[in-house]
């Protein structure tokens, strides 16, 4: 049973088709990597899934329900978590408060003007941070964290609404190589344990072929290949795109 189902997704900017009719599915507990060279339409695709952009045509279904064109916050409420290419956290809050804010949002507390937030969901927040290995840094300000740690915080935040689907845009960008693998290893464990579907884009091919269950390849807005890592690695079109472009990994 697929958690996320994308059909005929299209988006063009000023006549240029950034995404030109894409279909794919992600199933529960699966790690699906979306790869492709720069400008292939990965980020546009991602932003349409999460509601930052409205597709020109096509549908996005989550758990069988059409979520096309809903705003990000509505999509999140249905159980989709997300991390950003450039981390987006609340700099004026501590690590724990970042997670707590997401928990408060998930549990419908944010309309409360006079409740004290300090006491709310403290243990749950720590438990989430524990899972990403950030519990001991819970009282530090997000503004002063190392980049890799920020990524972990984002992951904890994304898990706060017990998502059925996790969308991760370049989750390891800007991290040291060994950190990358560690983060995605962690993500994989969490996805397995909680039966979460994960869709991520990635430049680092070591991460892609080491961690993904399945890979789909986008080029010039079109899906050119999909399959298991070995299948994709052997796929001719993929080899043409990557070898032709002269890069095998780390497109920047």
């Amino acid at each position: 049973m697929s958690v996320l189902s994308v059909r005929g997704l299209r988006k063009s900017f000023g006549g240029v088709e950034a995404v030109a009719g894409v279909d794919f599915d992600v199933t529960a507990g699966e790690m699906l990597a979306l790869i492709g060279p720069n400008g292939a339409g990965k980020t546009t695709c991602f932003n349409m899934l999460m509601g930052q952009l409205t597709p020109d045509s096509g549908t996005v279904s989550f758990d069988g329900a059409d979520i096309t064109g809903l705003p990000p916050r509505a999509i999140w409420r249905r159980g989709v978590g997300r991390t950003f290419q450039i981390t987006a956290t609340f700099a004026s809050m501590t690590v724990a408060e970042n997670v707590k804010t997401a928990l408060m949002s998930h549990r419908g507390d944010l309309g409360r003007f006079f409740a004290r937030a300090t006491a709310l969901h403290k243990d749950d927040a720590i438990a989430l941070l524990d899972q990403v290995g950030m519990a001991d840094q819970r009282d530090r300000a997000c503004g002063v964290l190392a980049y890799g740690d920020l990524k972990r915080v984002e992951l904890a935040v994304a898990l706060a609404n017990s998502p059925r689907l996790l969308l991760m845009d370049e989750p390891t960008a800007g991290m040291a190589p060994q950190e990358r693998v560690a983060l995605m290893e962690l993500t994989r464990q969490l996805a397995r344990a909680r039966d979460i579907a994960v869709l991520f884009t990635e430049h680092d091919m070591d991460v892609v072929f080491g961690q993904a269950d399945r890979v789909i390849v986008l080029n010039r807005g079109k899906l050119i290949a999909q399959g298991t890592p070995p299948e994709v690695r052997a796929h001719k079109a993929v080899r043409d795109v990557y070898l032709g472009a002269g890069t095998t990994s780390g497109g920047h």
Binding site: W76, F84, S92, M104, S105
Partner: peptide, 26 residues
């Protein structure tokens, strides 16, 4: 009190990063 309340957190969250706030349902 409102600043320390859940609403206050949502407000500060919206200020710090509208992108993130939107992505966690605010």
């Amino acid at each position: 009190r409102a600043i320390y309340s859940p609403f206050g957190y949502a407000l500060r969250g919206a200020r710090d990063s509208a992108l993130r706030a939107d992505a966690i349902g605010i």
